[in-house]
Design a protein around this nucleic acid. Structure first.
Length: 216
DNA sequence: CAGCGGATATTCT
DNA sequence: GAATATCCGCTGA
C-alpha cells in the first residue's frame, strides 16, 4: 500500500525555522513548476543547507550583494544564482528575514511532466539524470534568474510551489559534507549539511572541493 | 570507469 | 587576476 502524496502547499511557517531543521524535512516534498507548456513536478531527494551568518561556504557570508539579496529577505522565497558562466541553481530561503540562510535544491525525481523536462535536458541518458545535480534540476524545471525572488508560498498562480508530498522518515535520511564547497569534507568537518534519501538513484555523486586554475 | 579541459558571470583580492 | 554551491564531451584504460 503506497500512501498518496499530500498535495497541500507548505505554509510560510514551514520555512521560518532554522535551516538545519528545514533542509532534511524538505526531502520527499514535491516542487511544482508551472510553465506555459504545463506543469513539471519533482520529488526532492537531495538538498544542502547554507547558513549565512556563521557559514563561510554561503554566498551571504560576506554580506549582501546584488546577486544574493533575496537570501536576506523573508522565508519561502526562491533564490536563483548564475554560476560558472553557464548554469543556474535554485534555493529556498529559510529562517526569519535578515538571517540569510537557504537550502540549495540539489537533486530530485521528476514525477510529472517528464516529457517537458526531457526537451530541456537533451544530454540526459535516462530519466534518473534529468535532475541529478543542482544545475540540471534548474535546467529541467526551466528556472533562471527571472524567477529570483519569486514567492513560493503565496496562494494563487505562482511559477513555483512546494507541496507537502510524503516526508521521509528520519532513518532514511543520510547526511555528509556539502559538494564542492571549500573547507567542507575534511577531517573534523563541521558542516556535514548535505542531506539525501538513502539509496535513491536520483541523488548526485559526491565531489570534494577542487580548486581549478584558469588557462593563461 | 577516471581524469581533464572548456564554457565564462559574479565576486573578491 | 583568481576562485567558484557545475556540467559536458573527450581521452585513455
Amino acid at each position: 500500500m503506497i500512501a498518496t502524496p499530500d498535495r497541500t502547499p507548505l505554509p510560510r511557517e514551514f520555512f521560518d525555522r532554522p535551516v538545519l531543521d528545514v533542509a532534511p524535512d524538505l526531502l520527499g516534498r514535491i516542487l511544482v513548476r508551472t510553465t506555459p507548456d504545463g506543469p513539471i513536478a519533482l520529488r526532492l531527494t537531495e538538498v544542502e543547507a547554507y547558513d549565512g551568518a556563521d557559514d563561510p561556504g554561503s554566498h551571504a557570508y560576506r554580506g549582501r550583494t546584488a546577486r544574493n539579496g533575496v537570501m536576506f529577505g523573508p522565508p519561502g522565497h526562491v533564490y536563483v544564482y548564475f554560476t560558472y558562466g553557464m548554469w543556474f541553481c535554485m534555493n529556498l530561503v529559510c529562517g526569519p528575514e535578515g538571517k540569510a540562510s537557504a537550502v540549495l535544491l540539489r537533486a530530485g525525481e521528476i514525477i510529472e511532466g517528464a516529457e517537458l523536462a526531457r526537451t530541456r535536458r537533451l544530454s540526459a541518458r535516462n530519466d534518473k539524470e534529468l535532475a541529478k545535480g543542482p544545475a540540471r534540476l534548474a535546467t529541467a524545471l526551466d528556472v533562471d534568474r527571472s524567477l529570483d525572488g519569486t514567492d513560493a508560498c503565496t496562494s494563487g498562480a505562482t511559477p513555483l510551489k512546494v507541496l507537502a508530498g510524503t516526508p521521509v522518515p528520519r532513518d532514511q535520511v543520510r547526511n555528509g559534507p556539502r559538494t564542492g564547497v571549500a573547507g567542507d569534507g575534511g577531517n573534523g568537518d563541521i558542516h556535514p549539511w548535505r542531506f539525501w534519501i538513502a539509496n535513491d538513484p536520483t541523488v548526485s555523486p559526491y565531489r570534494a572541493h577542487v580548486p581549478r586554475r584558469r588557462r593563461s
